[in-house]
């Protein structure tokens, strides 16, 4: 019986004192392919950041692979693909070098790379279909190819649990198919995958479970929904208008008071 990769109960995240996530309960079992969905600002990216420890929890309890988060040290079991339009920095870097940095969870300080490390990097590049571009500078690749490089980087560490934050955002359709193909291979290998997506697109056949977020709360958890359902009808609040958390500033002598909510 494999351990449960993610168990979050009563998860609360506050940024600047304002609640962003409230009372989230989420358990992901080994081998699941979960899509976190919802509108912009619904808290889906924040949830992934909370699960990876990039955003501290203000309340609740998070366990990764059965270990309370504060004691969790086994980072090689986790692969993270951040939300990113590019993979470039101030200095050129080759595709191979970026992917190789995903191998650091397995390497010791001041030690050269082993043959196993190199094989894992080559394998990761093979899965995302960029083996022939290994020596190219990452800045010369298209946005979709750069996104695949970031996936290969997470893949090189041979993790069991993947977090992907909006992997398809701003990626052209051919690259979305390449991406779906790579994720399909991961799924076939038995990896647990949690991804944030606004729209599923070519990923749709892979998704087994959809978690829909709205206003920092989990509003749906179950079989994947058609795109229209996520954004419409029964998840919509009875109040047609979206209410901001920010207090509305209204002049005291505002004449058009009827419009103020």
């Amino acid at each position: 019986m494999p351990v449960t990769p993610i168990a979050l109960s009563g998860g609360v995240v506050a940024i600047g004192g304002r609640p962003i996530l409230r009372g989230i309960n989420l358990t992901v079992e080994a081998g699941e392919f979960v899509a976190l969905m919802g509108a912009n600002g619904s808290g889906k990216s924040t949830l992934v950041r909370a699960l990876t420890g990039l955003r501290p929890l203000a309340g609740g309890r998070l366990e990764l692979f059965g270990t309370p988060f504060d004691e969790f040290e086994d980072w090689r079991r986790i692969g993270f693909v951040p939300q990113r339009t590019g993979a470039t920095s101030g200095v050129p870097a080759s595709v191979w070098e970026i992917v190789a940095s995903g191998r650091l969870t397995h390497r010791r300080l001041f030690r050269p790379m082993s043959r196993i490390d190199r094989a894992a990097i080559d394998d990761a590049l093979e899965v995302v279909g960029l083996a022939d571009k290994a020596r190219d500078g990452v800045a010369t690749l298209s946005g979709g190819q750069q996104q695949r490089v970031l996936i290969a980087r997470a893949l090189a560490g041979e993790p069991e649990l993947f977090f992907l934050d909006e992997p398809t955002a701003g990626v052209d359709l051919p690259n979305q198919y390449a991406l779906a193909d790579a994720l399909g291979q991961l799924k076939a290998r038995g990896s647990t995958i949690v991804l944030v997506a606004h729209e599923l697109g070519p990923l749709e056949p892979l998704v087994e479970r959809a978690v829909v977020m709205r206003d920092g709360r989990k509003v749906y958890d179950g079989r994947p929904l058609a795109h229209a359902d996520v954004h419409a009808a029964h998840h919509e609040s009875p109040y047609a208008l979206h209410v901001d958390h920010a207090p509305r500033v209204v002049a005291p002598l505002e004449s058009d008071q009827a419009d103020v909510r």
Partner: peptide, 22 residues
């Protein structure tokens, strides 16, 4: 030079480096 792989990863992408346990 000796810590080049770690320093490269941290300078390239801090969030990824953090989730890698660096």
């Amino acid at each position: 030079v000796g810590l080049a792989p770690q320093l490269f990863a941290v300078s390239q992408d801090q969030e990824f480096a953090k989730v890698s346990g660096l």
